[in-house]
Amino acid sequence: MQRRAILLATAALCCAASATPAAAQEKAPLKILVGFLAGGSADTLARLMADGLRNDFSSIVVENKPGAGGRIALTQLKKAKPDGQTVLILPNGPMVLFPHLYKKLDYDPIQDFTPISLLASFQFGVVAGPGSSAKSIQDLISAAKSKPGQNSYGTAGQGTWPHLLGLMMEQSTGIELNHVPFQGGSAANAALLGSHVQYKFDVVSETAELHRNGKVRILAVTGAKRDLQVPEVPTLKELGIPMEASSWFAMYGPANLPTEVRKKLEMAVVNAVKTPELQGKLRKLGYEAVGSSSSELAASQKADLTRWEKPIKTANFSLD
């Protein structure tokens, strides 16, 4: 009896030992790469997502790999093992604009990565400062047509979203504006408020309060629908201008991510984004929570790649 008890106890210990690694493997660690400095919008969103995903992984680390507009982090993701333990959160620029802005990239935005989920979206406003008397988009167009190239808009630099939106506006309305690049968004804002430039294309959340206080006027928004932060402001499409553009943040994994791994990541992300807590935090940042499927992200990426090809090529503009 004593020998039998010892054997049973030993067997039980063996079973427990063999079960422990399997249980530990149920929740793997996750590394979230961010191609920008800590404290920025991409980093803030990544840390919000890390908090929202904390129950799905054994540990989560947000690793900043800033430089080259996110391309350094993309290169690291491209080299990562397709095991679901390394992902990247980034804005859509490197995936839909850079292929048209650079003649040569060291990654293919479609072939080298696995879409997981579109996390959040945001749009831009066409903003008139105190140096402009425009009260509407039609006023802006009329002023620009009467004095071609003399109405200016400020941006944070060549090839930025606001710069490209200005190019698209010119092509969509047949006007000619004067692009004035500055060293960063704060300098462009100061130029707008100081009447050194008349207009600016800016993220709605960055100018909504100034608009409500009457310091600037958001004449229109660029997205497919009105922005909840300024619901009284129409979209460009509502005003008859064939122009639509928005930006988004998404999560990607390396290429060849196994289907079951991709589905597990997608489900965890969607569940996190759909929680009222995370949606509220995103809303405070001026983002609209999405939490899409991987196929919806892939479709959005391809649509935006197509959308930006013509305006950038027509302008004959590149960053090379």
Results as ranks from 00 to 15, higher is better:
Lys65Phe: 11
Tyr199Ser: 09
Leu228His: 04
His196Met: 14
Thr222Pro: 03
Thr20Gly: 00
Ala191Gly: 08
Val87Phe: 00
Pro311Ser: 05
Gly174His: 08
Asp320Gln: 06
Leu305Ile: 09
Asp56Leu: 04
Ala24Cys: 01
Thr306Lys: 10
Glu170Asp: 07
Leu30Met: 09
Ala17Met: 12
Lys215Gly: 05
Lys237Asp: 14
Phe249Trp: 15
His211Met: 02
Leu90Ile: 15
Gln138Ile: 02
Met95Gln: 11
Asn178Gly: 08
Lys237Phe: 03
Arg212Phe: 03
Asp51Arg: 12
Asp43Met: 13
Leu101Ile: 08
Ser59Trp: 04
Leu8His: 06
Lys145Cys: 08
Ser146Glu: 12
Asp227Arg: 02
Ala5Leu: 15
Gly125His: 12
Leu119Asn: 00
Ile241His: 09
Ser133Trp: 04
Ala208Asp: 04
Ala255Phe: 10
Gln123Asn: 13
Thr207Met: 10
Leu228Gly: 07
Pro181Phe: 13
Ala19Gly: 05
Arg262Lys: 13
Gly240Phe: 00
Lys31Asp: 03
Lys27Met: 11
Ser172Ile: 11
Gly67Trp: 05
Val61Phe: 06
Ile72Met: 06
Ala5Asp: 11
Ser117Arg: 06
Asp227Glu: 03
Gln111Met: 12
Ala19Val: 13
Gly129Cys: 12
Pro148Cys: 14
Ala134Arg: 01
Ala144Glu: 11
Gln150Ala: 12
Val180Met: 14
His163Asp: 14
Val233Lys: 02
Val203Thr: 03
Cys15Glu: 05
Ala187Val: 05
Ile6Tyr: 00
Asp227His: 07
Ala120Ser: 15
Pro21Arg: 06
Ser295Asp: 15
Met267Arg: 14
Asp56Trp: 10
Tyr107Asp: 03
Leu192Thr: 06
Ala144Cys: 12
Lys79Ala: 04
Asp320Leu: 05
Gly240Met: 10
Leu165Asp: 06
